[in-house]
Simulated scan of single mutants.
Amino acid sequence: MTLTMEEFQKKMDILSKLLVDGLGSTKILFHYSFAEWLLDVKHCTQKYLCNAAEGHRMLAMSYTCRAKQLKPLEVQEFALHLVNSNLQIEPFNLALWMVWNGTPAKDSLTTSIPREQEVLQLLVKAGAHVNNEDDHASCIVQQALEREDSIRTLLDNGASVNQCDSSGRTLLANAAYSGNLDVVNLAHI
């Protein structure tokens, strides 16, 4: 936080040999094992030791600054960083954080459902809609079929067990067809 822009750029130039292009215009470390080394107290010297939660907090703040312009997948990324930031804030307050900053959470589940249950719950609390009558909603329900906890969240927030996917099967029929008794019992309740 005390670096000037010139000092920061010099450090980035030195670090650039270890970075590769990530999604969008981001940079990531060349290999995940190097990132793990930077997070491991046993292997990394204090000078280079990093804190993952601090990184998530910085990324969450970056998304906060441009919250109103975020695309659906970026909204999911924003929620992921908030969840992993270890801010010791209740989930409903994280949802309020997103709402107060104008995050367009409503359509954040139109293309995919996040893998992390906490992220899905945060998005729903921030106003994401899951009860659409189009093929996207069917696709979302299909993606969530294997994750019972996601199914519970979807059902609790308006998704219908009678909603059909592109092949004409309902959520309940898909669960039965795949032999997932837990989801069948959950969807049948």
Rank of each mutant, 00 (worst) to 15 (best):
A53I: 05
T64P: 05
L70P: 07
C50R: 01
Q69W: 08
S33Q: 14
N51Q: 05
A52R: 02
M58T: 11
E54Q: 10
A53D: 05
L38S: 09
L49P: 04
F34I: 15
Q69E: 15
C44R: 04
L23R: 15
F30R: 01
G24Y: 09
Q69L: 07
Y32K: 13
M61Q: 11
V20N: 03
T26G: 04
L39K: 06
H56T: 03
T26V: 06
K71L: 11
R66P: 00
E74S: 09
H43D: 01
E54L: 12
H31C: 02
I28M: 05
K71D: 00
H31Y: 04
C65E: 09
T26H: 08
L59T: 15
K42A: 10
C65L: 13
M58L: 13
G24C: 12
R66A: 00
T64L: 11
I28T: 12
C44Q: 02
G22C: 14
V20L: 14
F34R: 05
E54I: 07
E36R: 13
I28A: 09
T45S: 15
Y48M: 03
E54M: 14
T26M: 05
M61K: 09
E36W: 10
L70Y: 03
L70S: 07
G24Q: 11
S62K: 08
W37N: 05
Y48G: 01
L38A: 13
L29A: 08
W37Q: 13
G55V: 06
E36P: 06
Y63D: 07
A60S: 14
S33D: 15
L23G: 14
V20D: 05
A67V: 00
A35M: 06
L29D: 07
S25R: 10
T45W: 13
R57E: 01
D40P: 04
A60I: 07
S62Y: 11
H43F: 06
L73K: 07
Y32L: 10
R66T: 00
N51D: 14
V41T: 10
A67P: 01
T45C: 15
C50H: 02
A35S: 04
R66D: 04
K47W: 00
A53L: 02
S25W: 03
T64N: 11
H56Q: 10
M58G: 07
E36A: 09
H56S: 10
S62L: 14
K27V: 09
G55E: 03
G22M: 13
V20E: 09
M58I: 13
H43C: 00
Y32H: 12
L38W: 11
E54C: 11
L29H: 04
L59R: 06
A35F: 08
V20G: 05
N51C: 12
V41R: 14
Y48L: 09
L23M: 13
M58Y: 09
